[in-house]
Amino acid sequence: MTPRDASDDPSDTPSGTPSGAPDDSRWSDLERPPLNAASLRRALVRDGSLWTSLDVVPATGSTNTDLAARADGLPEGAVLVAEEQSSGRGRLDRRWSAPARSGLFFSVLLKPGPTVPVERWGWLPLLTGVAAATGLSRAAGVDTALKWPNDLLVTVGGEERKAGGILAERAGSVEAGGVVVGLGINVTLRADELPVPTAGSLALAGAATTDRDTVLRAVLRSLEQWYGDWRAVEGDPAASRLQETYAAGCATLGRKVRAELPGDRSITGEAVAVDGDGRLVLATGDGVQEPVGAGDVVHLRGV
């Protein structure tokens, strides 16, 4: 999801509520029906599946926070979905909100250790981006590009727009080895609901379907496949084809970018590669190739 300032109106009732409906009705927008939790569980939670539980709640502060608090007591594969988040968080603890049922707001609990060495866990947000882009393409027919390290981009009116974001956080005890990965995807967000002009949604990108049940199933099935393949080779990004697939779908590569780093430092250069550690490699003007492992990246020009 695109970060939204806390001062923006987080009204529960989205615009477009049918005439005559009570202002405080959470289910009044017929274009945005609630998710079918029972149907989702039947489709996804089964013997041999990665997904071991799936819960849908009407509203919460943050699915990442809620799932992380229970990480030690849950098996791998727990999924928590919220119809609405009031305190959703992005990278650098940015806050955002969106109208109820206008998107998919969910978190999953993964426990890659001890099979995957800890030093390879940094690939999880990139893996989730590849899986989400694959699932969205299959289910909604929307070409989704990846902005390093954690944004999902779609094209609206010929312009690149952010339609989703990913946040991975360590959760639970060191022994449990848990990682909670959260995703926010704008599905039916309308033009007058965009928090910033650079935001987008699947609907605005011309999606073939905006059925959130269909989209969520596709994304979770894709994530199950990519995570299983990655874990089967001990998290090796080359052997699992994750590194090359991410690079192929990464809109950041080939562009001039500015990386804003911790400590008020920035680097400007051409993004030339994603290395074996998942870092973005920048070729600077003085001929140095510098890997960036954390920070905000601003696209300065097209390919």
Results as ranks from 00 to 15, higher is better:
V156M: 10
P262W: 10
V303W: 11
L146G: 05
I267N: 00
T252S: 06
W148G: 02
V233I: 04
V219N: 02
A273F: 11
R4N: 11
R26I: 07
L216S: 08
L153C: 12
A238G: 07
R95V: 12
D66S: 03
E175A: 10
G48P: 05
A203D: 14
D93V: 00
S107I: 01
E175M: 03
T63F: 01
T252I: 06
R91T: 08
C250D: 11
R101G: 00
L35K: 12
L282I: 01
S49L: 08
G165V: 06
A205R: 15
A283Q: 01
V45I: 05
R217H: 03
W51C: 03
L44C: 01
R91Y: 05
T13G: 04
E76L: 09
A203N: 12
R70F: 04
T134G: 05
G177W: 14
L194Y: 14
S28T: 06
A191E: 15
G293P: 06
V257D: 03
A283G: 00
G77E: 13
V79H: 01
G113C: 04
G77K: 13
L30D: 15
S15R: 08
T245H: 03
S62D: 01
W96P: 08
N150I: 08
V156W: 14
F105H: 12
I185E: 11
P3E: 08
V281M: 05
D151C: 07
L124E: 09
G48V: 01
A232C: 03
S86G: 04
V281D: 07
A238F: 13
S87N: 02
S25F: 06
K111C: 10
R32F: 08
V81N: 00
S240A: 09
G103C: 03
D9H: 12
D229N: 11
G302T: 13
E270K: 02
D275S: 14
L74N: 03
P197A: 11
P18Q: 11
W51L: 06
Q225G: 00
S86E: 07
D23R: 12
A205I: 14
R26G: 01
A139T: 13
V272R: 08
P58K: 06
A294C: 04
L153S: 12
R255G: 00
A239T: 14
R138V: 04
T284P: 00
D277Y: 13
L104W: 11
G278I: 07
A199Y: 15
P34V: 10
G90R: 09
T144G: 05
K162W: 15
N36M: 04
G158P: 10
F106Y: 04
A176N: 14
R258F: 06
S62P: 02
L153R: 15
N150W: 09
V292H: 10
L194P: 13
